[in-house]
Nucleic acid binder design. Structure first.
Lengths: 133, 133
DNA sequence: TTTTTCATGTAAGAAAAGCTAACATTTGTT
DNA sequence: AACAAATGTTAGCTTTTCTTACATGAAAAA
C-alpha cells in the first residue's frame, strides 16, 4: 500500500468533525455503520475514529441517497467498487516491498498526511463518475 | 486565499488526534498554546480544534526544541516566517477574486480536504529547510 | 386506505475525553 | 543552593460520544 493510501485510511477524525465535514447527523453516520456501509475504527474508550476514506464513503452514501438509492443498493455498489479496487491492487502487486519499522511507518503517515496538497490546489468533484458514465 | 490554504487552516482535529500525529503530550500542546506559538480554534464547548497548519507548527516546534532552541526563540522564528508568508501573499494579491457563498465555501473546503493527495504520493520532510540552508 | 418498512429524530443514562488550575519533577543556569 | 524552563501528574468539572429505546414522517406494500 502506498503512503497516500495509508494516509487516507488513518483513523483520526472524531464523529463531531465528520458531522461538520459531511453535514450528516450523528444518527445518520451511526445508522450507516450499523448497516455496514462504513466500519470506522474505535479508540480504546470505544469512540469512533474516522479516516479520510470513511468520509469519502459517507459523502458517496449521502449523494446516492439523494439520488433515491436505498441503503441495500448502496451496499451493493460499494461491494462492486471494493472488488474493482481490489483488482487494481492486484495489478500493482507484482512489485517487491520492504518492511517498515513502527517508527518509519508513523513518520510516513505523518508526512503524507501533512503534506496533503500543501503545494497544489485542485478541485475535484465526488467520485460518482466511477459508477455512472 | 487559495482552496488548499483554506483547507490547511480548517479546524477539525481533536487534541487526541494531534497527540497521536505529533507524539506530543496534551500538556506540551497546551503549554505551547499558552506561550502563543499556536492558537487553535475552539468548539462551542471550549474544546480545542486544530488545523493542519497547527499540526505543522507543532512539528516545527518539536524539531526546534530538540535542536536546543527555547520557546522564546521559536516564537521569534515563527514571527519571521509569518512575515515572509505575508509578503508572499501580498505578491499574489494583485489578482481579482470573487466572493464565495457559504455553501460554495463549505463544498470547496470539503473537496479540498478530501482530495488531499488522493491520486499522488509524495514524501516530504519537515519544513525546517526554510530556516536553515 | 391501513399497515410496514426505511431513514432519521430525540431522549436518557453512562462513560470517555478534554478543560483549567495547581502543585511536583527534571534539567540546565546563575 | 536557588532559579527558570519545560513537562508530568492530579483533581474536579464540563463537553462529547456511546448505546439503547422509543417516536415520526414518508414511501412502499398489502
Amino acid at each position: 500500500m502506498s503512503g497516500s493510501q495509508l494516509r487516507r485510511s488513518l483513523p483520526i477524525f472524531s464523529i463531531g468533525s465528520v458531522m461538520q465535514l459531511t453535514e450528516l447527523s450523528a444518527r445518520q453516520i451511526r445508522y450507516y455503520e450499523e448497516h455496514e456501509l462504513i466500519t470506522p475504527q474505535r479508540t480504546e474508550g470505544n469512540r469512533r475514529l474516522f479516516s479520510l476514506n470513511d468520509i469519502d464513503r459517507l459523502l458517496e452514501i449521502k449523494e446516492l441517497l439523494e439520488q433515491g438509492v436505498n441503503l441495500a443498493g448502496i451496499k451493493k455498489l460499494m461491494e462492486v467498487k471494493e472488488q474493482n479496487t481490489a483488482i487494481e491492487a492486484v495489478k500493482q502487486e507484482e512489485k517487491p516491498r520492504r518492511d517498515l519499522s513502527e517508527k518509519e511507518l508513523r513518520n510516513l503517515l505523518r508526512s503524507e498526511l501533512l503534506q496533503a496538497g500543501k503545494y497544489k490546489s485542485s478541485l475535484r468533484q465526488g467520485d460518482m463518475s466511477r459508477f455512472f458514465h
